[in-house]
Design a protein around this nucleic acid. Sequence first.
DNA 1: CAAATATTTCATTTATTATTGAAATATAAT
DNA 2: ATTATATTTCAATAATAAATGAAATATTTG
Lengths: 162, 162
Amino acid sequence: MQIETESLTQLEAEVIDIFVRGVQLIGLPKSIGEIYGLLYISPVPLSMNQIMTKLNISLGSASQGLKQLRSFRAVKIVYQAGDRKDYFTAETEFRKLTVGFFREEVYPHLESAAERLQSIQTQLEEMHSEDREHYQSRLKKLEGWQKNSHGLVEKIIKFIKF
Amino acid sequence: MQIETESLTQLEAEVIDIFVRGVQLIGLPKSIGEIYGLLYISPVPLSMNQIMTKLNISLGSASQGLKQLRSFRAVKIVYQAGDRKDYFTAETEFRKLTVGFFREEVYPHLESAAERLQSIQTQLEEMHSEDREHYQSRLKKLEGWQKNSHGLVEKIIKFIKF
DNA sequence: CAAATATTTCATTTATTATTGAAATATAAT
DNA sequence: ATTATATTTCAATAATAAATGAAATATTTG
């Protein structure tokens, strides 16, 4: 009979801590890091209930956290035969993880920035300020940034994929 | 006589908005984006007072925001002859900006992660769980990630520098 | 060096974001 | 179909982070 540990071992706690810091660096909530970290180090898939209990977080947090983690494919559901609960496991492939994040979180922002810039450019056409040229050059530069960032993100994705 | 506009023009507001979104993407406070955006589009350097007034933010925000922006070299002080106030201007070189950010914000986190991983590895040596091998392999993988991220950041910096 | 102005710091307030948990919904077993 | 269990949703609360502004600390000028 396997003894179910309710609380975290030191090892688990330390690994989770690394992930918590990591996700906070990219502006994601702590609970996301906790859940992912726990699943990352766990030898077996865990149910939502186990996750809640071990991490001492609420049902809602667990559910929402897992949802978000699945949204960028950091966590997968594993169907356990003869059990109606969902079991969750971490995607440990660095490339899949980061690519998902870039696609879900970074790309959309860059796209919308491009659109907005376009609209501002149009407005500028009608301007008759003495500073018009300055503004035009700054917007031009900003457009350059936008394109550079876009290119950089694509390069990063390629690099991550090898 | 030059008319000093107190509030933001539509152009300023829209450019600022782009920067606000941008900085929020990387987890920086809104005020940072506002200040930088204003300085980015401004044809002339601005004093802290002008920044406060135009953006309608407090003295403290302006001071702290400018401090942080200077910390990763996104903003420079320009000494204006015959005026004791400091005047601020935006660093518009994309490469300088991003390199500064990576150095100040991203690098240190990666360094500390490496140390912590090392310490966990040491603890693992003394473990006698049946799952020890699993743990070891996950930690190994995590170490791989850490090194990859480090390498990626270096590549990004190189790319940005051209 | 005193007065005036500019800037920083930091305790408090305010705004934002994450977390909770109860209710609603979905899913499976009997 | 009914009951039991699992999951999601979302309004309320708690926790966190940012903004404020008054006081402390420079800095410049006469």
